[in-house]
Nucleic acid binder design. Structure first.
Lengths: 134, 134
DNA sequence: GTACATTTGTGCGTATGTATG
DNA sequence: TCATACATACGCACAAATGTA
C-alpha cells in the first residue's frame, strides 16, 4: 500500500485509509503505539501536514487517541453495560461540544447518548460504554 | 467578545467558543451562512489556520457544514422519527468511518446508530434522524 | 458555454510552546 | 536536565469547487 499524490483521493485520506486498514485488519491492536508523525511521514513519503490531517480523521472516528508529548495509540474499547429503556424514556445520540468533551473526559470521536426521562430529566452518557435495549 | 492570544485557552478554541455561542444563542440561525474564513480572520485578528481549526471543531460537533467553493453554514436539524426497539434489539452509537460517511452522505459530526437485531442483522442509521424508545 | 471572482482544500515551510518520559 | 513528540500559529502558494455575469 503506498501513496499516489496524483490520485483523486487526497493524500491525507490515503494515509488515513492505510492506517485505518492497519487497525481494522489487526496489524495494529488496541493499546498499540503508532509511529511518530515524523516517522510516518518518512515511511510514506508525505509531509507532516498530511499525516496530521490523517490522524485527525482517525481521531474523529474514535479509532485513535493522541497524547501531546507522548504519541498516538490505538484506542481500547471500553466494556459496554446494558441499559434497559423504561417507558417514557427517549434516547438520542449527538457529539459533545468541546467543553462538554473536556468536562466528561471523553476522547475525540466518541458520541453522547442523550437519555430523556418521562419526567423531563436528562442524562448524558458516554456512548461507547452503553448499549440500549427495550 | 474578543481574542486573547496570551490566554491559556488556545486561540482557535476561543474562536470556536465565540462562533458556537453565536449559534447557541441564536445570533446565527440554522441555514445562515458564516462569514468566509478570510473575513472571520480579519474580524477577529487571527490567522487562517486558527479559523480553520475552529471551524473544524464546530464541524466535529455537528453544528456547521462546509462546502468547498461555497462557504460554511449553520446546519439545519433534521426532523427525528421515533424508532421503537423490539425484543432482542440492541442499539449502540459510534462515529462513521470517513468512507461510511461519504457513502451514507452524512455531514461531519453526525454519529451512527448501530441497531443489531435478534437475528444478528445490523442496521446503520443516521443518529440525527432517529430517537429510540422502548 | 466561457470567463471570472470568491471560497475552501491541500500541502509545505517555519517558528515557538508544552507535555511526556 | 534533556531529548522526543505533539500543539499552536503564522505565512505562502496553488488546486478545485461554486456561483454568477
Amino acid at each position: 500500500m503506498s501513496i499516489d499524490s496524483r490520485s483523486d483521493r487526497a493524500v491525507y485520506l490515503q494515509v488515513a485509509d492505510i492506517v485505518r486498514s492497519d487497525i481494522v485488519k489487526g496489524r495494529l491492536k488496541p493499546g498499540d503505539d503508532l509511529p511518530s508523525e515524523a516517522a510516518l511521514g518518512q515511511t510514506l513519503g508525505v509531509g507532516r501536514e498530511a499525516i496530521r490531517q490523517a490522524l485527525g480523521v482517525l481521531r474523529a472516528e474514535g479509532l485513535i487517541a493522541t497524547t501531546r508529548g507522548f504519541g498516538t495509540r490505538v484506542r481500547e474499547r471500553a466494556e459496554r453495560h446494558n441499559l434497559k429503556l423504561k417507558r417514557g424514556d427517549v434516547a438520542t445520540a449527538r457529539m459533545p461540544s468541546e467543553p462538554e468533551r473536556r468536562t466528561m473526559d471523553l476522547d475525540e470521536g466518541v458520541p453522547l447518548i442523550v437519555l430523556t426521562h418521562a419526567d423531563g430529566s436528562v442524562e448524558l452518557l458516554d456512548a461507547e460504554t452503553v448499549e440500549l435495549t427495550a
